[in-house]
Design a protein around this nucleic acid. Structure first.
Length: 242
RNA sequence: UGAAGUCAUUA
């Protein structure tokens, strides 16, 4: 199964569904039973091409044939629903999760929250965050990055600073990814001074900048013509340029 | 599972 699932994933990634589907035939001949890993890439392929109906049919098929779709399979589907802005469908799907035998995880909610944010429904996104927390799930680095990202595009630096402070009170740890998100929003509006301040902030708090952090800052310095400072940054301790 | 599939931020 692992061998064929890997092949199927590879074909799907390359856009070659037909070849992927041929693998199912071979598996059948070998009496090799597909599992959720086997089907998920196929579901994702159709989802990425707007084939939500097809994806749904595959999920139903799996269910009928006793290959219970797991949380990853559903997460792929949730993302497609979000991209199509079919949020009521997401609600329905989550509501039925119990009887369908799966439990939404942090990726499920991250996907949903991100979809709502991107659709401009930030209030709803925060409601879902509450639901997520109510289900005993902790916000991950990705959750925070999603929220910070939307707050940065919605409002101004001041409010983001508030969130950075509040995050400590809430016990949420904003790490490298969270800072990267905020800094890239700042840089995109040419606020490289604020970005550099934040850079200093994170170092002070013991959050280690990674290669992406440096790239974000260096990129904005270059765009702003601050080539000297940019060159300095490249020579920084612990930075591995890529 | 220490082998396969899903979410955000830079280029």
């Amino acid at each position: 199964v692992v061998t064929y699932s890997s092949l199927i994933a590879g074909f799907c990634r390359a856009g070659l569904v037909d070849d992927a589907l041929k693998m199912f035939k071979i598996m059948h001949e070998l009496k090799c039973t597909p599992n959720a890993h086997t089907y998920t890439p196929i579901i994702q392929f159709y989802c990425s091409r707007g084939g939500i109906g097809m994806a749904r049919r595959i999920l139903d098929y799996m269910h009928d044939y006793g290959i219970v779709p797991d949380v990853v399979a559903y997460n792929v589907f949730v993302q497609a629903l979000c991209q199509a802005q079919q949020f009521e469908q997401v609600e329905t799907l989550l509501g039925e999760s119990d009887e369908k035998g799966w439990m939404p995880d942090s990726v499920t909610y991250n996907t949903y929250i991100n979809g709502l944010c991107k659709a401009g429904r930030v209030e709803d996104a925060f409601d879902q965050l509450e639901v997520m927390l109510g289900n005993g799930l902790h916000p991950t680095a990705v959750t925070l990055s999603i929220l910070l990202n939307s707050l940065c595009s919605e409002s101004q630096v001041v409010q983001v600073k508030c969130l950075l402070e509040k995050s400590v009170l809430l016990g949420w740890f904003i790490g490298t990814d969270g800072y990267n998100t905020v800094m890239s929003r700042l840089c995109e509006s040419g606020q490289w001074v604020a970005a550099l301040k934040l850079f200093a902030d994170m170092v002070k708090k013991g959050v280690n900048p990674d290669t992406q952090t440096f790239n974000i800052v260096i990129n904005s310095l270059c765009k702003g013509g601050k080539l000297g400072v940019a060159k300095c940054m490249v020579r920084s301790q612990g930075f591995i340029a890529d």
